[in-house]
Structures are given as structure tokens and as C-alpha cells.
């Protein structure tokens, strides 16, 4: 009985978590695209104005990013009137929850057919690498190893800490700027 009553609450919590994490990921991708040369290299081949969306099917939480003229990515929120050039869609809320709670690697979610790609597959692999790079910087190594296909051997602790701190600082700064301008 109690379990029956708690079930909707658990689903709501899951939905809330996925929505929150998509915003965190979106803002962090914006930040890493401003500070990390490797990510800027990945993003450089995307056309200016390129719209990337990651969403939960059919009408669940989403994040939308736009490639800026300066070569960075801009987080533009949870929706866009314009059709994205590349859309990565989780088939179910639970699949997004597993990836965003680091229980399933992004590449494994692709391999497990939990994600549909609408758009250029080459760009999708690039955006996955951006996401992996972000996760290696902002997550503790033990958690990041669960999230990415292969934790880079070359990434030392000082570089991880410095870049992680720069990304977190950028996220806070961008967030404050957004609040001030709204």
C-alpha cells in the first residue's frame, strides 16, 4: 500500500533529477567549451548556429545548445522553437536517468539502443566525446570511470582539479549572469 503511494513520488523525483541534471550538463558544456582546447577542437567543425538537443521522448525534459560564432557552445534552455540540427533522444525517462546518474555509460546507452539519433552521426560522436570530456573533469575519478568508455590515462590530478575548478567557476558565473539579465 505504502509502496503504491510512493511510486508516483519516485517517478516525480526521477523526472526532477533528470531535468536538473540536463540543466547542469547544459551549463557545464557551455563552460567547458569556453575553457578547454580539446572541446573547442571538437566543436570547431560544427557550423555556426548549429543546434544540438538532448531530450527524453516523447515530451520529457531536454537541453538545447547552440554553437556560437566565437566557437563556444551556448546553453539556451530546455526547449527551442527551431528544429535542432542534431537531436539525441532517450527512448524513456528511465534510460536518461541511468545515464545521468552514471549507472550506464553514454556509449553503452547508444550500444543498447536506448538512444535515437536524428541528424549527422559524425556530429553525434563528437558531442558524445564533449560529454565524456566534461564528465572526466567534473566528476570524481571513481564516478567518471562509470560514466565514460575509457578514463584517459594521460589526465593527471592537477589538470583535472584545475580544469574542473575552471568549469565550475564558469558555470556559477554564467548562471549568475543569466539570473541578473532575466
Amino acid at each position: 500500500m505504502i509502496r503504491e503511494r510512493l511510486r508516483p513520488l519516485a517517478s516525480q523525483a526521477k523526472r526532477g533529477y533528470v531535468r536538473l541534471m540536463l540543466e547542469v550538463v547544459g551549463r557545464s558544456m557551455e563552460a567547458i567549451s569556453q575553457v578547454d582546447e580539446q572541446v573547442r577542437g571538437e566543436v570547431s567543425v560544427l557550423p555556426n548556429g548549429f543546434l544540438f538537443a538532448m531530450r527524453v521522448m516523447p515530451n520529457g525534459p531536454a537541453l538545447v545548445m547552440r554553437k556560437q560564432r566565437d566557437g563556444s557552445l551556448q546553453y539556451i534552455g530546455g526547449d527551442s522553437a527551431q528544429k535542432p540540427d542534431l537531436s539525441v533522444q532517450f527512448k524513456h525517462l528511465h534510460h536518461a536517468f541511468m545515464v545521468l546518474s552514471f549507472q550506464e555509460k553514454t556509449a553503452q546507452a547508444f550500444a543498447n539502443d536506448r538512444i535515437l539519433v536524428d541528424g549527422d552521426l559524425g556530429y553525434a560522436t563528437r558531442m558524445t566525446r564533449v560529454l565524456n570530456r566534461l564528465e572526466t573533469f567534473i566528476l570524481p575519478k571513481l564516478v567518471a570511470e562509470r560514466a565514460v568508455k575509457q578514463y584517459p590515462d594521460s589526465l593527471g590530478l592537477p589538470e583535472k582539479l584545475i580544469n574542473g575548478a575552471r568549469i565550475y567557476l564558469k558555470v556559477v558565473t554564467n548562471f549568475v549572469d543569466t539570473v541578473r539579465s532575466s
Binding site: A107, F110, A111, L121, A124, T125, V148, K149, Q150, P152
Partner: peptide
Amino acid sequence: IDDGSIMFNPRE
């Protein structure tokens, strides 16, 4: 590295 097949390679 822009080819879609690389996604499913066991090593990154």
C-alpha cells in the same frame, strides 16, 4: 574519428 562506427568500438 567522425565515423559513427567508432562509437561502438570497445576502446575510446
